[in-house]
Design a protein around this nucleic acid. Structure first.
Lengths: 129, 129
DNA sequence: CCTTGACCTTCCAGTGACTGGAAGCCCAAT
DNA sequence: ATTGGGCTTCCAGTCACTGGAAGGTCAAGG
Protein backbone atom coordinates (compact mmCIF):
# COMPACT_ATOMS: atom_id res chain seq x y z
CA UNK A 1 0.00 0.00 0.00
CA UNK A 2 1.00 3.61 -0.53
CA UNK A 3 2.30 5.84 2.23
CA UNK A 4 -1.01 7.70 2.47
CA UNK A 5 -2.94 4.53 3.19
CA UNK A 6 -0.32 3.37 5.70
CA UNK A 7 -0.49 6.79 7.35
CA UNK A 8 -4.27 6.56 7.66
CA UNK A 9 -4.13 3.04 9.11
CA UNK A 10 -1.39 3.79 11.60
CA UNK A 11 -2.57 7.26 12.60
CA UNK A 12 0.75 8.86 11.70
CA UNK A 13 1.08 11.62 9.08
CA UNK A 14 2.81 10.53 5.87
CA UNK A 15 5.31 13.31 6.40
CA UNK A 16 6.17 11.92 9.79
CA UNK A 17 6.60 8.40 8.41
CA UNK A 18 9.18 9.74 5.94
CA UNK A 19 10.84 11.59 8.78
CA UNK A 20 11.01 8.42 10.90
CA UNK A 21 12.58 6.61 7.97
CA UNK A 22 15.04 9.43 7.45
CA UNK A 23 16.32 9.36 11.03
CA UNK A 24 16.48 5.55 10.99
CA UNK A 25 13.76 4.95 13.56
CA UNK A 26 12.02 2.57 11.17
CA UNK A 27 13.62 0.61 8.32
CA UNK A 28 13.36 2.10 4.83
CA UNK A 29 10.17 0.94 3.15
CA UNK A 30 10.19 -1.08 -0.05
CA UNK A 31 9.62 0.73 -3.31
CA UNK A 32 7.38 0.14 -6.29
CA UNK A 33 8.84 0.21 -9.81
CA UNK A 34 7.98 3.91 -10.03
CA UNK A 35 9.66 4.79 -6.76
CA UNK A 36 6.66 4.99 -4.44
CA UNK A 37 7.15 3.66 -0.92
CA UNK A 38 5.29 0.38 -0.44
CA UNK A 39 4.00 -0.74 2.96
CA UNK A 40 2.91 -4.13 4.23
CA UNK A 41 0.51 -4.85 7.08
CA UNK A 42 3.53 -5.63 9.22
CA UNK A 43 5.00 -2.21 8.45
CA UNK A 44 1.73 -0.64 9.56
CA UNK A 45 1.93 -2.64 12.79
CA UNK A 46 5.36 -1.18 13.43
CA UNK A 47 4.06 2.31 12.74
CA UNK A 48 1.20 1.79 15.18
CA UNK A 49 3.68 0.61 17.81
CA UNK A 50 5.68 3.78 17.27
CA UNK A 51 2.55 5.92 17.34
CA UNK A 52 1.41 4.50 20.64
CA UNK A 53 4.79 4.77 22.28
CA UNK A 54 5.09 8.38 21.12
CA UNK A 55 1.59 9.19 22.36
CA UNK A 56 2.70 7.96 25.79
CA UNK A 57 5.44 10.53 25.61
CA UNK A 58 8.42 8.25 25.02
CA UNK A 59 11.22 10.05 23.20
CA UNK A 60 12.07 8.93 19.70
CA UNK A 61 15.25 7.41 21.09
CA UNK A 62 13.29 5.43 23.68
CA UNK A 63 10.92 4.30 20.96
CA UNK A 64 13.91 3.05 19.00
CA UNK A 65 15.08 1.06 22.02
CA UNK A 66 11.58 -0.31 22.58
CA UNK A 67 11.33 -1.34 18.93
CA UNK A 68 14.61 -3.21 19.24
CA UNK A 69 13.36 -5.05 22.31
CA UNK A 70 10.05 -5.76 20.64
CA UNK A 71 11.85 -7.45 17.77
CA UNK A 72 14.14 -9.37 20.08
CA UNK A 73 12.60 -12.68 21.08
CA UNK A 74 15.26 -13.11 23.77
CA UNK A 75 14.66 -9.76 25.42
CA UNK A 76 14.40 -9.43 29.18
CA UNK A 77 11.16 -7.76 30.26
CA UNK A 78 13.28 -6.00 32.87
CA UNK A 79 14.91 -3.97 30.11
CA UNK A 80 11.54 -2.81 28.88
CA UNK A 81 10.39 -2.01 32.38
CA UNK A 82 13.53 0.00 33.05
CA UNK A 83 12.84 2.25 30.07
CA UNK A 84 9.25 2.70 31.18
CA UNK A 85 10.33 3.43 34.75
CA UNK A 86 12.76 6.08 33.60
CA UNK A 87 10.05 7.70 31.56
CA UNK A 88 7.53 7.59 34.40
CA UNK A 89 10.05 9.27 36.66
CA UNK A 90 10.56 12.04 34.12
CA UNK A 91 6.80 12.43 33.71
CA UNK A 92 6.38 12.69 37.45
CA UNK A 93 9.09 15.32 37.74
CA UNK A 94 7.38 17.30 35.01
CA UNK A 95 3.99 17.01 36.71
CA UNK A 96 5.42 18.31 39.96
CA UNK A 97 7.13 21.18 38.21
CA UNK A 98 3.91 22.14 36.47
CA UNK A 99 1.89 21.85 39.67
CA UNK A 100 4.29 24.20 41.43
CA UNK A 101 4.00 26.65 38.56
CA UNK A 102 0.25 26.35 38.60
CA UNK A 103 0.08 27.01 42.35
CA UNK A 104 2.21 30.13 42.02
CA UNK A 105 0.19 31.47 39.11
CA UNK A 106 -3.14 30.78 40.76
CA UNK A 107 -2.08 32.54 43.93
CA UNK A 108 -0.86 35.54 41.95
CA UNK A 109 -4.04 35.68 39.93
CA UNK A 110 -6.10 35.57 43.09
CA UNK A 111 -4.50 38.75 44.25
CA UNK A 112 -4.95 40.56 40.92
CA UNK A 113 -8.15 42.54 40.40
CA UNK A 114 -8.13 41.88 36.69
CA UNK A 115 -9.97 45.07 35.84
CA UNK A 116 -9.11 48.39 34.17
CA UNK A 117 -6.89 49.61 36.97
CA UNK A 118 -3.14 49.34 36.46
CA UNK A 119 -2.00 47.94 39.80
CA UNK A 120 -1.16 44.30 39.38
CA UNK A 121 0.52 41.91 41.84
CA UNK A 122 1.42 39.60 38.98
CA UNK A 123 3.73 42.17 37.41
CA UNK A 124 5.01 43.25 40.82
CA UNK A 125 5.94 39.70 41.70
CA UNK A 126 7.66 39.15 38.36
CA UNK A 127 9.67 42.31 38.92
CA UNK A 128 10.52 41.84 42.63
CA UNK A 129 10.37 38.19 43.48
CA UNK B 1 28.54 46.53 33.78
CA UNK B 2 29.57 43.79 31.37
CA UNK B 3 27.22 41.11 30.11
CA UNK B 4 28.82 38.49 32.39
CA UNK B 5 28.08 40.51 35.50
CA UNK B 6 24.54 41.24 34.33
CA UNK B 7 24.08 37.55 33.61
CA UNK B 8 25.22 36.63 37.10
CA UNK B 9 22.96 39.19 38.73
CA UNK B 10 19.88 38.29 36.69
CA UNK B 11 20.41 34.55 36.67
CA UNK B 12 20.33 34.36 32.87
CA UNK B 13 23.26 33.03 30.81
CA UNK B 14 25.11 35.71 28.84
CA UNK B 15 24.43 33.73 25.70
CA UNK B 16 20.73 33.88 26.40
CA UNK B 17 20.82 37.62 26.99
CA UNK B 18 22.36 38.10 23.55
CA UNK B 19 19.71 35.82 22.14
CA UNK B 20 16.92 37.82 23.79
CA UNK B 21 18.38 40.98 22.33
CA UNK B 22 18.66 39.36 18.92
CA UNK B 23 15.00 38.37 18.79
CA UNK B 24 13.94 41.76 20.12
CA UNK B 25 12.57 40.57 23.45
CA UNK B 26 14.71 43.13 25.24
CA UNK B 27 16.08 46.38 23.81
CA UNK B 28 19.65 46.38 22.52
CA UNK B 29 22.06 47.19 25.32
CA UNK B 30 24.30 50.22 25.21
CA UNK B 31 27.90 49.73 24.13
CA UNK B 32 31.24 50.80 25.52
CA UNK B 33 33.81 52.45 23.26
CA UNK B 34 35.33 49.07 22.55
CA UNK B 35 32.03 47.46 21.60
CA UNK B 36 31.20 45.60 24.80
CA UNK B 37 27.54 45.58 25.82
CA UNK B 38 26.97 47.78 28.87
CA UNK B 39 24.18 47.10 31.34
CA UNK B 40 22.57 49.31 33.97
CA UNK B 41 20.81 48.19 37.14
CA UNK B 42 17.55 48.87 35.36
CA UNK B 43 18.56 46.53 32.53
CA UNK B 44 19.29 43.83 35.10
CA UNK B 45 15.85 44.40 36.58
CA UNK B 46 14.32 43.77 33.18
CA UNK B 47 16.38 40.63 32.78
CA UNK B 48 15.22 39.37 36.15
CA UNK B 49 11.62 40.04 35.14
CA UNK B 50 12.16 37.98 32.01
CA UNK B 51 13.90 35.24 33.95
CA UNK B 52 11.05 34.91 36.42
CA UNK B 53 8.36 34.94 33.79
CA UNK B 54 10.22 32.28 31.81
CA UNK B 55 10.72 30.16 34.93
CA UNK B 56 6.94 30.21 35.37
CA UNK B 57 6.70 28.72 31.90
CA UNK B 58 5.45 31.77 29.98
CA UNK B 59 6.43 31.63 26.33
CA UNK B 60 8.89 34.20 25.06
CA UNK B 61 6.02 35.86 23.22
CA UNK B 62 3.98 36.07 26.42
CA UNK B 63 7.00 37.50 28.22
CA UNK B 64 7.21 40.15 25.52
CA UNK B 65 3.57 41.05 26.08
CA UNK B 66 4.07 41.11 29.85
CA UNK B 67 7.11 43.36 29.46
CA UNK B 68 5.05 45.77 27.38
CA UNK B 69 2.34 45.88 30.03
CA UNK B 70 4.92 46.27 32.76
CA UNK B 71 6.31 49.35 31.06
CA UNK B 72 2.86 50.77 30.40
CA UNK B 73 1.69 52.88 33.32
CA UNK B 74 -1.83 52.93 31.87
CA UNK B 75 -2.16 49.17 31.56
CA UNK B 76 -5.27 47.35 32.69
CA UNK B 77 -4.50 44.62 35.19
CA UNK B 78 -7.18 42.63 33.37
CA UNK B 79 -4.84 42.31 30.38
CA UNK B 80 -2.12 40.87 32.58
CA UNK B 81 -4.54 38.51 34.25
CA UNK B 82 -5.82 37.30 30.88
CA UNK B 83 -2.33 36.29 29.81
CA UNK B 84 -1.78 34.51 33.11
CA UNK B 85 -5.16 32.78 32.87
CA UNK B 86 -4.40 31.52 29.38
CA UNK B 87 -1.10 30.15 30.59
CA UNK B 88 -2.64 28.49 33.64
CA UNK B 89 -5.19 26.81 31.39
CA UNK B 90 -2.42 25.46 29.18
CA UNK B 91 -0.46 24.27 32.22
CA UNK B 92 -3.55 22.50 33.55
CA UNK B 93 -4.17 20.78 30.23
CA UNK B 94 -0.57 19.60 30.23
CA UNK B 95 -0.81 18.32 33.80
CA UNK B 96 -3.90 16.32 32.95
CA UNK B 97 -2.27 14.89 29.86
CA UNK B 98 0.78 13.85 31.85
CA UNK B 99 -1.32 12.35 34.63
CA UNK B 100 -3.19 10.23 32.11
CA UNK B 101 0.10 9.09 30.62
CA UNK B 102 1.46 8.34 34.05
CA UNK B 103 -1.61 6.28 34.98
CA UNK B 104 -1.34 4.21 31.80
CA UNK B 105 2.38 3.62 32.26
CA UNK B 106 2.07 2.69 35.92
CA UNK B 107 -0.69 0.20 35.18
CA UNK B 108 1.38 -1.37 32.40
CA UNK B 109 4.44 -1.56 34.60
CA UNK B 110 2.43 -3.23 37.33
CA UNK B 111 1.62 -6.07 34.99
CA UNK B 112 5.22 -6.50 33.78
CA UNK B 113 7.46 -8.89 35.69
CA UNK B 114 10.53 -6.87 34.93
CA UNK B 115 12.85 -9.88 35.08
CA UNK B 116 14.87 -11.93 32.57
CA UNK B 117 11.84 -13.50 30.90
CA UNK B 118 10.77 -12.05 27.57
CA UNK B 119 7.00 -11.80 28.03
CA UNK B 120 6.07 -8.18 28.59
CA UNK B 121 2.61 -6.60 28.70
CA UNK B 122 4.15 -3.21 28.01
CA UNK B 123 5.33 -4.25 24.56
CA UNK B 124 2.12 -6.17 23.95
CA UNK B 125 0.03 -3.13 24.73
CA UNK B 126 2.15 -0.89 22.52
CA UNK B 127 1.72 -3.37 19.68
CA UNK B 128 -2.01 -4.14 20.17
CA UNK B 129 -3.65 -1.29 21.96
C1' DC C 1 56.49 46.44 27.50
C1' DC C 2 54.74 41.89 27.04
C1' DT C 3 52.27 38.05 28.05
C1' DT C 4 48.65 35.51 30.12
C1' DG C 5 44.01 34.45 30.97
C1' DA C 6 39.51 35.83 31.45
C1' DC C 7 36.32 38.22 29.24
C1' DC C 8 33.92 40.00 25.22
C1' DT C 9 32.41 40.10 20.05
C1' DT C 10 29.98 37.91 15.78
C1' DC C 11 28.37 34.17 13.18
C1' DC C 12 27.11 29.47 12.09
C1' DA C 13 25.27 25.10 13.39
C1' DG C 14 22.76 21.79 16.20
C1' DT C 15 19.07 20.28 19.44
C1' DG C 16 13.83 17.40 19.19
C1' DA C 17 10.31 16.16 16.66
C1' DC C 18 8.26 17.39 13.47
C1' DT C 19 5.72 20.58 9.78
C1' DG C 20 5.14 23.53 5.59
C1' DG C 21 6.04 24.36 1.06
C1' DA C 22 8.16 24.25 -3.63
C1' DA C 23 9.18 21.73 -7.79
C1' DG C 24 8.35 17.92 -10.22
C1' DC C 25 6.90 12.79 -11.30
C1' DC C 26 2.97 9.15 -11.37
C1' DC C 27 -1.56 7.18 -11.76
C1' DA C 28 -6.55 6.62 -12.46
C1' DA C 29 -10.56 8.53 -14.35
C1' DT C 30 -12.98 11.41 -17.50
C1' DA D 1 -5.53 14.54 -23.39
C1' DT D 2 -6.20 16.56 -19.32
C1' DT D 3 -7.45 16.93 -14.82
C1' DG D 4 -6.82 16.03 -9.79
C1' DG D 5 -4.90 13.70 -6.37
C1' DG D 6 -0.99 11.40 -4.52
C1' DC D 7 3.73 10.57 -4.52
C1' DT D 8 8.91 12.05 -4.62
C1' DT D 9 12.96 14.97 -2.81
C1' DC D 10 14.91 18.80 -0.58
C1' DC D 11 15.07 23.09 1.97
C1' DA D 12 13.36 25.98 5.52
C1' DG D 13 10.96 27.09 9.74
C1' DT D 14 9.29 26.13 14.44
C1' DC D 15 10.78 27.04 19.92
C1' DA D 16 14.13 28.52 23.03
C1' DC D 17 18.12 28.15 23.48
C1' DT D 18 23.21 26.15 23.44
C1' DG D 19 27.90 25.00 21.64
C1' DG D 20 31.78 26.26 19.32
C1' DA D 21 35.05 28.71 16.23
C1' DA D 22 37.67 32.80 15.22
C1' DG D 23 39.09 36.86 16.83
C1' DG D 24 39.14 41.52 19.67
C1' DT D 25 39.73 43.67 24.70
C1' DC D 26 41.15 44.29 29.30
C1' DA D 27 43.58 44.09 33.81
C1' DA D 28 47.24 42.05 36.36
C1' DG D 29 51.79 40.27 36.95
C1' DG D 30 56.66 39.78 35.51
Amino acid sequence: MNIGEAARRAGVPAKTIRYYEGIGLIPAAGRTASGYRDYSDRDVETLRFVQHARSLGFSVKDVGDLLQLWHDRDRASGDVKRIAAGHVAAVERKIEELQAIRATLVSLMHRCHGDDRPDCPILEELANP
